[in-house]
């Protein structure tokens, strides 16, 4: 797949196209979801689930984000306020001009996942990249087996994508959503406890070549992997998505390598079996 990108090509590897924020959803105190279209109201490009996009405010800077989902005419980025660019994004209003380039990376292995039961595990904002595949599976419901989402956050106020996790997904036939929080509050009726312990409590079966797709903070992933191993999930069937600092998105600027892989090009999606063959430098 050699993609020769000319200067007149609207989406070149390093030069973005102009876009516009058409909607902003406040997910929680420091996370907002930005819906981005071209100024003409079209989708800037069509990513596969799990792929990345470089989003910028022209006079501030650019950063690589997972594309958490897409509509017919827009891309969605769920972004935590954590630095100069993300501060500026959080202050932006609907109508703000942005620039966007991509899509980058491999995305989730759709062919491998199709026809199988999928267990999705997310922690905190780690649900953002996983959501792209969840929504794909929901939209292509017939192509997948049973779907289960186990999602946890620090507190009920820290849960993101509330409309999806509380209303949309539980209504999908053959789909189950299990939520947990580290600390509850007076109104919280659901489970209280860390995600790895909740996984062991729910004990999802790995039978039928079930695939597990997980993303979350590194410490959560570490303990989730132990829980999944106990339940008998195979390393080849455990899929995660990594983040690294990125600049180019096409495996040339150097910085996002893990061994001889570039996360922006060969990732960000890797199976546990693949990660075990790579240096633990991420």
């Amino acid at each position: 797949m050699t993609q020769v990108l000319r200067a007149e090509n609207p989406v070149s590897p390093l030069v973005p196209v102009v876009g516009k924020i058409i909607k902003i959803v406040a997910e929680k105190i420091d996370v907002k979801t930005f819906h981005v279209s071209t100024p003409e109201g079209e989708k800037p490009f069509t990513p596969a689930p799990g792929q990345l996009g470089m989003l910028s405010i022209l006079n501030v800077g650019e950063g690589m984000f997972s594309i958490t989902t897409q509509g017919p005419n827009h891309l969605e980025f769920s972004i935590k306020k954590t630095g100069v660019l993300t501060d500026a994004l959080h202050e932006a209003e609907v109508g703000q001009t942005v620039a966007v380039r991509g899509p980058y990376g491999n995305g989730f292995p759709l062919d491998f996942c199709k026809g199988k039961d999928i267990l999705f595990i997310g922690g905190g904002i780690g649900l953002a990249p996983v959501r792209s595949l969840i929504n794909y599976a929901v939209e292509n419901r017939g192509a997948f087996g049973n779907l289960q989402v186990i999602y946890g956050s620090r507190s009920p106020a820290d849960l993101v994508f509330k409309e999806d996790i509380l209303e949309n997904w539980p209504k999908v036939p053959g789909m189950k959503v299990d939520l947990t929080v580290d600390r509850g509050d007076d109104e919280w009726k659901g489970n209280v406890g860390f995600v790895p312990a909740f996984i062991e409590q729910l004990a999802p079966s790995p039978d039928g070549d079930k695939v597990c797709v997980l993303c979350g903070p590194p410490i959560m992933i570490k303990f989730c992997l132990q829980s999944l191993a106990k339940l008998g999930f195979k390393d080849e069937n455990i899929i995660t998505t990594l983040e690294m600092r990125m600049k180019c998105g096409v495996g040339k600027c150097g910085r996002c390598n893990i061994g001889s892989c570039f996360v922006c090009l060969d990732g960000p999606v890797f199976t546990l079996a693949q990660l075990q063959k790579m240096p633990p430098e991420y």
């Binding site: 390093l14 022209l58 006079n59 703000q96 620039a99």
Partner: peptide
């Protein structure tokens, strides 16, 4: 690589 101009929330760029 490219230049840009901004005007409030508006903006444009050129390779």
């Amino acid at each position: 690589m490219y230049k840009f101009s901004t005007d409030g929330m508006a903006g444009s760029l050129e390779t």
